[in-house]
Write a protein that binds this DNA or RNA. Structure first.
Lengths: 230, 230
DNA sequence: AATGAAAATTGGTCTGACAATATTATAACT
DNA sequence: AGTTATAATATTGTCAGACCAATTTTCATT
């Protein structure tokens, strides 16, 4: 592997990143204009623009045509582009993503119980009741199902873990999967949610993880079936 | 939120991504040249270049000065750029990263044992012996420690899991942490590695996970100490 | 056939101009 | 004075052409 000689553009990128760091600029802060940068860095507008565009692409800056340049408030926004491309290029196996999700959710349960984080049991129950409603009304159930699992992860009091999980979830949602979900299976899913919440309330990690494992079982069965067919 | 009118640059970006998809281009494949793109898309070189630079920034293309443009060989590596910036801007708590690492490694052990993946026990032992050597010789121990944990994750037969774990690991390595590592503690670490390998060989998940938990304990103690001081 | 110099190709940087969009200043009106 | 419509200005987007730097290709020489 050859060491890439630093192009002017890359130097400017580094200087801009440092500038942001040193001046402690925060999301939505106004940044310098192209003109100011060309003058201060003494490079052509071309180079400045290319550096700015790179930084916009990775979600560090936000360029408003005619209105200036701002620090982006990226909540993983640009990561989506990368995941999508990665998925389309390498074709990730669903099984791999489900395995990861299971690991994360089992881990979340352990964190919640071991750390004894303050947890709003009622809120979880409430979300699950909404889930129950959509099931009974034959509406789209995904929203509340996801909200329930999101809330569990969020309860771990670990923002990085939450962000990371969201990335995985985002990735997972790229994969089209037609899991047959009859009413019966959904009701069972609802009951498992409740069982998990109860286990958390009782500080019963083993039970919580066992139920979560059961909760994941149908999708693994489905995947195994799919893999056998192909 | 206003819907951003598509700039020429963004249109070109979309068309290039589609082109890659449709022609099923794979990493390291040669892509079109700037000249070809300007002619075929009938836009200025400026626009083409800015689009290409955006796609390079997110790890979709790789531009070789003088040598052409290629499909990038990205293993989610460009996510690292984003996380790094995120870390430098918002600051991440070490505790959060260590918690995630623990979750991932406990999860890896479960995957390995539950799936009964073919596993080269001897190789793991060998790596750990090299680790032992560096400890005894007072050399830098990090390399083989990391290699050991990497090998565990790799053994799960889940490439996506491995890629994401690597991202966390890289993220973690950004954080400077001065864990006091005396010879005694390192030897204990070495022994735990061996114990984990033996537990895997014996399909003893509980023991493996218990040992791994112990393995993480010193760093949690250290972090707690640090948090109390500040 | 192997080598090495010359030519052509390709991406990097510069300059200057005009267009499209957003912001600011000004003028007109109530 | 305050509001609103309009004009002026500032800022980013796109274009064209030129030259530089790195790489690849061509081809004459050995």
């Amino acid at each position: 592997m050859r060491i890439q000689k630093a192009s002017l553009k890359n130097i400017v990128i580094e200087r801009i990143k440092n500038y942001i760091s040193e001046n402690n600029l925060k999301p939505n802060d106004k940044f310098l204009t192209e003109k100011m940068l060309t003058e201060q860095l003494k490079v052509s507008r071309t180079v400045v623009r290319e550096a700015l565009i790179s930084l916009q692409a990775v979600g560090i800056l936000m360029i408003k045509p005619g209105g200036g340049i701002y620090i982006a408030d990226t909540k993983l926004g640009s990561i989506h582009t990368i995941l999508k491309h990665h998925y389309e290029t390498y074709g990730v196996k669903i099984r791999e993503l489900v395995e990861i999700r299971k690991i994360l959710e089992l881990g979340a349960l352990r964190l919640i119980i071991e750390k004894q984080v303050p947890l709003d049991i009622d809120q979880l129950k409430e979300i699950n009741e909404s889930y129950h409603q959509t099931i009974k009304n034959n509406e789209d159930t995904k929203k509340f199902d996801r909200l329930f699992h999101q809330s569990l992860i969020k309860a771990t009091d670990n923002a990085t873990f939450f962000n990371f999980s969201e990335i995985i979830h985002e990735y997972f949602s790229l994969v089209k999967i037609d899991l047959i979900e009859n009413q019966e299976a959904l009701i069972r899913s609802y009951e498992q949610h409740n069982e998990i919440v109860d286990a958390i309330r009782d500080n019963d990690l083993v039970h919580a993880q066992k139920t979560m494992t059961d909760h994941f079982e149908p999708i693994f069965t489905f995947i195994k079936q799919m893999e056998e067919e192909s």
